[in-house]
Amino acid sequence: MVGSPCALCRQAKKLELSHIVPKFVIRYLKKTSVVAIRNMQNPNKVVQDGEKHYLLCGDCEDLFSIYETKFANTFFHPYMKDNIKEFNYDSNIYYFLTSVSWRSLYLDILDFVEHSQELGLDTETLDCLIASEKEMRNYLLKNQSTANGIEHHIFFFEDIKNITNELVETRPHTTFHRGIVSYTFFNKELKTYATITNMMGIILFTLYNKGQNEKWINTEIINGTGVISAENQIIESVCINELVEILNNAKKAVLETSDSQKEIINNRVKDKLEEFKNSKTFEDLKKDFNL
């Protein structure tokens, strides 16, 4: 696609279809799924790939791919395949996280500007998001050494033993461990604006403005070296509401799945019953059943 400038470098080059959630996450989801992947907004539709947009030129895609590989090899696959719970990181991981949230923020701002009135989006909030996108873009282009005012937090959705009764039916383990989503949200009253990205249970919150009295313990990834663990993490923030929203949307998707599609899914499971019994999906379903 030629004509529109690259969203990152702003040069008029041929644009490529860019994944919003990195491709290695989608590839792993497909590899470990017995049944077809479905669109959460339209559960009766089978999808072959994650959300993509003509966003970046080839050079910027190649730049991002370097950091995607580093995150995949040091965080994602060790956590998913080897049950590693503690990770040493450096500034490459901060860069990767910035690149992921920037993609969603950039596209969401376009939508927010077009529909600001119906979304109830005030000028102060929109100005903050636009300024954050510019800050992140300049950092990603390596025009500056960090993305000032931006906080990245990783929350690992580990196994849970109980949950409120109204959320049991949302199948939390299955929803987060077998799900992919990324979007920007805002709470005008509490002044918290952020992008959330779920990468199969590795959940990234990028904060552009943080309300008062929020508590984030053992979750932040700084622009430097550090250690993060999938244990003893505490979040007290309006951002938790988004996790509940994701769960409720998953429950809604199940209810909206047609009988014919349910039959297709059931037949697929029957045809590959032994494979299904040994799958990560079945593991998560058992955990959800025991809540």
Rank of each mutant, 00 (worst) to 15 (best):
N267A: 03
T206W: 09
N148M: 07
F24T: 08
Q11K: 15
N213H: 04
L255S: 12
S104C: 09
G149I: 02
L63K: 15
D159W: 01
C57N: 04
Y95N: 06
S91D: 15
E114F: 02
V35R: 10
F96M: 07
I240G: 00
K287F: 03
T192N: 10
F155V: 14
L207I: 14
I221N: 01
I228S: 05
E68F: 09
G201T: 04
N278E: 12
I66V: 15
I20L: 13
T74D: 11
L243W: 14
V181H: 10
S145P: 11
N88A: 12
E231C: 05
P172G: 07
S260P: 00
Y139P: 03
L17E: 14
G179M: 03
E51A: 12
T219S: 12
V113Y: 02
I265E: 11
I84V: 15
I93H: 10
N42T: 11
L285Y: 10
E245L: 07
E133G: 00
W102N: 04
K85W: 00
L141W: 10
E214Q: 11
L204H: 13
T206S: 15
F176N: 04
R137G: 04
V254D: 11
N290R: 13
Q41W: 11
Y95G: 02
T206Y: 08
H177D: 08
T164R: 12
I234P: 00
L247R: 02
T257S: 06
Y208G: 03
C57D: 05
R171W: 08
N92V: 00
R137C: 01
N73Y: 08
S65D: 09
S145F: 07
D90V: 08
P43F: 04
V238H: 08
N209Y: 05
Q48K: 14
I130T: 12
C60H: 02
R27G: 01
W102L: 01
V254K: 12
I93M: 13
H19Y: 12
N290C: 06
I221K: 06
I235G: 00
F156H: 07
W102I: 01
L255V: 08
N278M: 10
N73D: 14
H77F: 15
C239W: 03
M199N: 03
N42M: 06
V2L: 15
N198M: 06
I66D: 12
K52S: 01
H53E: 13
K134T: 13
N39C: 10
S99L: 04
N162E: 13
E158F: 01
K134Y: 05
V21Y: 01
K70Q: 13
K161P: 00
V254T: 07
I246N: 03
K142W: 02
I234N: 07
Y94W: 10
L55V: 06
V21E: 01
K142T: 09
L167E: 02
P172E: 06
W102R: 04
K81D: 15
I20T: 09
V35M: 09
F186R: 11
N73E: 15
M40N: 11
I84S: 07
P43S: 03
V34Q: 01
